[in-house]
Nucleic acid binder design. Structure first.
Lengths: 344, 344
DNA sequence: GTACTTACCCAAATCGATTTGTGCAAATCG
DNA sequence: CGATTTGCACAAATCGATTTGGGTAAGTAC
C-alpha cells in the first residue's frame, strides 16, 4: 500500500497482477478484448494498492483535461476581485461553474492569463470564456496565439465579428431605461457611464447619444471609474446639478448599480426627493439596489443565465457544434422599484 | 505558422532552428549551458512559429500544474450552487481565487470530486481545500486515497485532529450571541440550526446545549434544512410560539441568515414586534440582513479572510512549511443591528 | 494434418515536455 | 606535445498513461 510514499502507477498495478500495463489499461477502461477474470483481477489489485490514474498523463495523450477558464476583464481593471456590494461577477462565476460541471468540465477563474507570472494551469485549459474584453484585448491575442478556443461575452469593440461572441446588452438597456424615463415624464436624462473600454459601455453610450440626437437634446454624459463605489454619488451630483452651463437633469441613468446607490444617497443628503424630483436607475443591478430604501430601479442582468449560456456555447465550440459567431444573450429585464415609481 | 492546424511543439521549434529539442528546452528555460546566439535564435524561431509549451506535458514531469481545488460541501448538499441571497460562498471563492493567483496557483470550484462523472481536471490538482466537510466525508477519503494533499475549513466531525484543519467558529459565535441576548435581558433563547452534519452546526448546537444546561434552562432547539430559504420563517415561528408545552422564547438565534430574515418577516406578519417583543439574530450573515428593515443582527463571517487563509495554508502544506494540524481562523464579529437593538 | 479463426495478451510507439549523461571540439595546463 | 578542462550540443531516458500492431495458443474446418 505504501511503497516509498510514491503514488502507484499503472506499472505497479501490472507488476502486482503479474500482467502487462497494456492489459491493465484495457481492463480498467473496457477497451480491448480482456478475459472477464483478468478484468476482475485487475480491478481488485488496483483497488488494493490504491491506484488512481494520473489525470495529467491521460490528458497528455488526449490533450484535454476538461478544464475551462473564465476571465472577467472588469475584475482585472479593478484592483480587487471582490468589490464590495457587487455580486454580479460571483453569481456569473458560480453559474458557469455549475454549468461546466454539468457538461463534464470544471471551470477556473483566472486573472489576466497574458501576465507573465500566470500559473501553468491557466494554459492547460481546453477553452476560455472572456467576459467583456477591452479594445484590442491582449488576452484574446494570447488565446489566438496559443490556439486555445474561446468565446466572449460582449465583443472586443475593436474587432467585431472576428470571434464567437454574445452580444452585449447595453443598447437594449439604454433604450428601455430611456423609454421608461420618458413615460414618467422626464424631460432631461443624464447618463453616468463607467470607464472600461468594453462593448457594454461603448454600446450604451452610443445608444444614449443617438437618442439625444433624435430628440435634439444636448447629451449630459459623465463618467466614473467602475472601481469607485457609492462614495462618488456626491461628486456625480455636483457635476450634474451645480453647473449653470446647462439645464439640470430630472433623471439619471447610472450604468453601475453602486453609482446609482451613491447618487440616491447623495440626493437624500442634499434634500432632493427621489423619485419625485429626480428619477434614478441603475444599469447593472446589485443586491443593495433591491433592499435599500428607497429601493432602486435597475436591470436584472441575469448573470446566472449568461454564465450558463456561455459555458454551453464554449462546449459546443469545442465539440465543433458552434455554427455561428453571433450568439444571443437574453435581454435584461428592467425591474422597477421606488426610485422611479411616482408616489402619486 | 500553420502546418496542418496542429499546435507547434518543441520538436517543430528544434527542426525550424536546425538544432535538437534538448537545446531548445534549455535555451527557453535558461537551464543548461547554451551559447548566447543560440538562445536568441531559439527565442526568435519560437516566437515566429507561435510556440507555446504544453502545460500538460510539463506538468506530467513536474507532476504539478499549480492548480488548487475548492470543494464547498454545503453547496453539494444544496441542490444549487447559487442559493439566492447567500453571498458567503461566492465571496469565499472569489477571495480564494485571488489569493491563489498571488501564490502562482489557480483555483477551481469543484462539486463533489468523489462523484464518478467528475472531470479529469478535478484529479489533476496539486491540492484541495474542503470547506465544512460532513461526518466521515467521502471526499476526504477520495483525497487520501489519491494522495492529494488537502486542508479543511472546519473539521470532519467524526475525525478530529486527523487532517490539517481550521477550527470552525460555531462555539465562539454561539457564546457571543447568547451573551448578547442575555445582556439585553432575554430569558429564554431558542436556536434554529441547519441540518448538514458539519462541524459548524455540530459545535454550535453543543455550545447552545451546554449553555442551557449551565442555566438549568430547557433547550429550545429546532432545525431547518439549509436548502430552505426565507419562506420557512412562519414554520419556525409556528413550532416555537404556538405550543403550550413550553414557555415561548423571547430571542431566536438562526444560524442561517436567510432563516433569520424569514423569521423577522414572519414575526412582522404575526404582529410580533422585533426587537421589542422578540430578539432575532443570524449566524452567517447575508447582504439582506444588512439592508432589510429592520436590519438584522448577524455575524460577519469574513469569508474573504477565510478564503485567503485557506489558500495560504494549503500552499504552505504543499511546500512542506505547514507544521501544525490545528489552524486558527479569526473569530467572526457580531454586527449588532436593529433586530437586537432596544428602541428605548 | 494443414489452414484458418478466435480469444487473449503484450511490446513498443506515442503524447510533449525536462533531465541526465555523453560526446566532441577547442582551449588551457604542465 | 600529451593531458586535462571547458563550452556547447545532443541522444536517450523519463514522466504515466493510451493505442497500435502484432503474436501465441487453442479451437474449428475440411
Amino acid at each position: 500500500m505504501n511503497p516509498g510514499e510514491r503514488r502507484p502507477t499503472i506499472k505497479d498495478v501490472a507488476a502486482a497482477a503479474g500482467i502487462s500495463p497494456t492489459t491493465v489499461s484495457q481492463a480498467l477502461n473496457g477497451k480491448g478484448v480482456v478475459r472477464k477474470e483478468t478484468v476482475e483481477l485487475v480491478q481488485r489489485v488496483a483497488k488494493e494498492i490504491g491506484y488512481q490514474p494520473s489525470a495529467l498523463a491521460r490528458g497528455l495523450r488526449s490533450s484535454s483535461i476538461r478544464l475551462l477558464g473564465l476571465v472577467i476583464r472588469p475584475l482585472d481593471s479593478l484592483d480587487t476581485f471582490l468589490p464590495p456590494g457587487v455580486d454580479f461577477f460571483m453569481r456569473l462565476t458560480g453559474a458557469a461553474s455549475v454549468a461546466a460541471l454539468e457538461h463534464g468540465y470544471s471551470l477556473m477563474l483566472i486573472a489576466d492569463p497574458s501576465r507573465p507570472d500566470t500559473p501553468l494551469s491557466a494554459l492547460a485549459t481546453d477553452a476560455y470564456i472572456v467576459f467583456e474584453p477591452i479594445e484590442n484585448d491582449p488576452v484574446l491575442d494570447l488565446l489566438v496565439r496559443g490556439q486555445i478556443p474561446f468565446i466572449t461575452l460582449g465583443e472586443d469593440p475593436a474587432r467585431p465579428g472576428q470571434f464567437p461572441a454574445f452580444n452585449a446588452s447595453g443598447a437594449w438597456q439604454t433604450d428601455d431605461i430611456l423609454s421608461h424615463f420618458e413615460e414618467l415624464g422626464a424631460r432631461r436624462v443624464a447618463m453616468v457611464s463607467g470607464t472600461d473600454l468594453n462593448a457594454w459601455n461603448h454600446e450604451s453610450r452610443t445608444a444614449y447619444l443617438s437618442w439625444c440626437e433624435a430628440r435634439g437634446q444636448q447629451p449630459l454624459l459623465v463618467s466614473r471609474s467602475e472601481t469607485e463605489g457609492e462614495d462618488v454619488g456626491e461628486s456625480i451630483l455636483a457635476e450634474l446639478m451645480d453647473s449653470s452651463a446647462f439645464e439640470q437633469p430630472d433623471a439619471i441613468y447610472c450604468m453601475t448599480g453602486r453609482h446609482a446607490s451613491g447618487v440616491v444617497e447623495a440626493a437624500r443628503i442634499r434634500g432632493i426627493r427621489v423619485p419625485d424630483e429626480l428619477l434614478v436607475a441603475g444599469g447593472s443591478g446589485t443586491t443593495q439596489n433591491e433592499t435599500s430604501s428607497p429601493s432602486i430601479t435597475a436591470f436584472d442582468m441575469q448573470p446566472e443565465i449568461h454564465g450558463q449560456l456561455a459555458v454551453e456555447a464554449v462546449v459546443a465550440l469545442l465539440e465543433g457544434r458552434l455554427t455561428t459567431r453571433r450568439l444571443s444573450a437574453p435581454r435584461p429585464k428592467l425591474v422597477v422599484r421606488d426610485s422611479t415609481r411616482r408616489t402619486r
